[in-house]
Amino acid sequence: MAVFSIVLLYGPLIVMAFFSFNESRSVTLFTGFSWTWYQQAAGNERVQEAALLSLQIALVATIVATTVATMAGLATTRTKSFKALPVVYAIINQPLMVPEIVTAVGTLVFFGIIKQVTGVYGLGYLMLAHIVFCIPFAYMPIRARLEDMDLTYEHAAADLYATPWLAFKRVTFPLMLPGILAGAMLSFVISLDDVIISLLVAGPGETTLPIWMIGQLRRGLTPEVNAISTVLLGVTVLVVSLVFLLTIRKR
């Protein structure tokens, strides 16, 4: 059963990656190794634009979401605990539980109202949506790291004449950095891979890489999409491995 699951999980990915190196268009018959489809994808202006947009959004979403999540992590683990704490955790983690399509529709409606009232349009909405759904993913490893960190380190710093800011800079921050990096990387791939929310929230011309790929797939499977998917897969595997390395406990 376990073997079956693993085959089902990884089989398609391996087949996809394998055929992205195929010389011919066929996705059933391997005729020879080549980089053709990668070259073609890289040369495609549409792909370039979409990739650039995706990277831009992912970068902004990562930076903002990680900053917010860091502050939320500090607030929920380093300030005097209060009774509402479980509620705060629930609120921060809520987006992880709500079906993404629901969040997407909600966001669409909400942004629609704002657009009508303010008359402001633009890429900002898509970025904001990405920031928001990235926050819980950034928050998880940061909070885990902070909860693992003994408070006495910060007490020791204060005891040794460190002002709250210096204690944060010299002790808390360096110690929580692995958690922050893990959160940032998770945010990055989550934003990069997102389809549903992007599809609904994106304005005209705001074509991210996954949206472009879906558009292509409607016209049939192409090795070009295969190649792009393989690159995305590679990035994801790399990032997830790094996150794993950063969050396994040292000592």
């Binding site: 380190y153 007490h155 204060a158 040794l160």
Partner: peptide, 20 residues
């Protein structure tokens, strides 16, 4: 006075040496 302004130092029970 907050802790960082008191001319008093502590040897903590678990030492709390900075691991980094």
């Amino acid at each position: 006075l907050p802790p960082f302004q008191r001319p008093v130092n502590t040897v903590f029970q678990n030492y709390a040496l900075f691991p980094h």
